[in-house]
Structures are given as C-alpha cells and as structure tokens.
Design a protein around this nucleic acid. Structure first.
Lengths: 128, 128
DNA sequence: TTCATACTTCGATATTCGTGGAAATATCGA
DNA sequence: TCGATATTTCCACGAATATCGAAGTATGAA
C-alpha cells in the first residue's frame, strides 16, 4: 500500500459522518445495508450520505451493489486489513520492546479473528 | 476510546505531511527526533512542520520534550495501539469468518511485537 | 405510460484547512 | 549583555471540504 492510498483511507475515516457510516457497515457485516436505511439510522440527509459514501468507496473502504431500487453498501474488510497493516509497518525495526503496547492489538485481534499460524518473524534492518 | 477521539487521530494522520512525520517518528523509535531534523529530512518549512506537529500532539499521537535548544518529538505507541483497537472493534459480531482478511494483521503484528502471552509480560521492562 | 420510491448529481455557500512570510520566544555560548 | 540557533506563534490568503436545496436518474408497480 502506498502512502497516498493510506492518506485517502485515513482522511475518509477522519470525519464524523463517514466514520459512523463505516462502523455501521462493519457491524452490518457482508450483507451490508441499503443507503436509505443507513440514512435513517444515522439521521442524515440522503444526499449528504451519498457524498460520504462516495468518498468511502473512492478510498476502497466500501463496495456497493444494486438490488432492485436499493443500493447496498458493504464494508471492505480486505481494504481495512491493508490499512491496518500499513499503519503497523516499521513499528519496531529491530526493537520489539518499542511497540509492546501494540501487543494488545494482537490479542484482541486474535480473540476476534480465526487463529493463524504465525510465520517466523522477519525483522527488517534499520537504515537510519 | 470515543469515536470523537478516533476522528481526531484519523484526520491527523490523513494528511500527507503529517503522515510522513508520524511514520518517521515511528521509525525513529522512543528516542524520537528534534523538530529541526524532521524538517530537514522531510524538506518542509519549520513553521509548517510545527503546525503539523501540533495537530499530531493534539491528537495524542506524538509527545514532545525539550532538550537544550531542541524539542524532541516521539511517536506515542500506546495511542497508536488504542486507535488500532478502536478500528478493529466490532468487526465480526458473532461471525469470525467475516473478518478473516484481518487475520493478516494478526500475523504481521505477531511477527513484529513480543509473543502474544499478553497477560504477564515475560520480557524485562525496558528502561530508557 | 404514469407514478412513487431510492439514490445520486449539481450548484451554491459557509467553513475549515494547509501554507508560508514575518515576528516572537526560548536556550545556549561568547 | 549580545548574537546565533531552534522552534513556535501570528496572520493572511488560496484551496479543499461539508452541507443543503433542487433537479436528475434508475427501478418497479399500477
């Protein structure tokens, strides 16, 4: 993931309305929600919501499909994963103790996601 | 973490200059970097950098300490961890396979951070 | 066709944000 | 004290962004 892509994602999520939409879609899971229902649940105007959904879609964080008159939006978990990985990259070059606080992320993620066989740590060398 | 706090963090990181600064500080580790060195490395004006550092500090993502004439900035890994946890919250209510893509985050984090026996840290405490 | 529903796009406005010049503050050495 | 270095604050301006009404497009039903 390029830094520019991350910026698009982060600034997309860094706004009240859009973060609320995204989190709602994350909770909704793969079935997603139609735009109208999102607007009603969050009590926002449909055109404002549409603009925000566009920003999220542009960032690749949500996908959409038409179903009859409705357009169903879903969170893109893979994109989310890519973003999180980007944010965690280079966090402790050669010094694991440095990012020990991030261990909490690991445990909570482990509690949430299926267990994964951990590969041998490939630690990058620091080029300061 | 409140949603409002997450928005402050995300929008702070969702800008080219600030993301570059933050990532540089993350790589720099706990020793951090003086503002002047950051400005020279990223080739930005010192006042622009100062404004951006203010935004990051306001979001709690960086801390600063004075050292002689310099002011040293460091990334706050705990804040980063809190943000990541917030983003991963509620990602798979009752359906673990939903966020399987996020498993990649877990494995890469495990490769980076200390072993996941988070209950009681086996490593010795690091003193700066 | 005609109408109603579900969303989106357009256009204007108000606000926020990023940038850079100039001045101010803080620290240190002579 | 004076001057140099390091960084911040102040201020103004152009660009980007959020918001909202109004109009437009797509779908399905009568």
């Amino acid at each position: 993931m390029k830094s520019a892509d991350a910026i698009v994602c982060l600034s997309a999520l860094g706004q009240e309305g859009r973060l609320a939409v995204f989190r709602l879609l994350v909770k909704a899971g793969p079935d997603g929600l139609p735009a109208g229902k999102i607007a009603r649940r969050l009590d926002v105007l449909p055109n404002s919501l549409s603009a925000n959904l566009n920003v999220l879609a542009n960032a690749g964080l949500v996908a959409s499909r038409r179903e009859g008159r409705s357009i169903i939006y879903t969170a893109d978990f893979a994109a989310m994963s890519t973003l999180l990985n980007f944010l965690m990259a280079d966090c402790c070059n050669g010094a694991p103790e440095v990012c020990a606080p991030l261990a909490g992320v690991v445990s909570s993620a482990a509690a949430c996601c299926p267990p994964v066989k951990v590969k041998a740590p490939t630690r990058k060398k620091v080029s300061a």
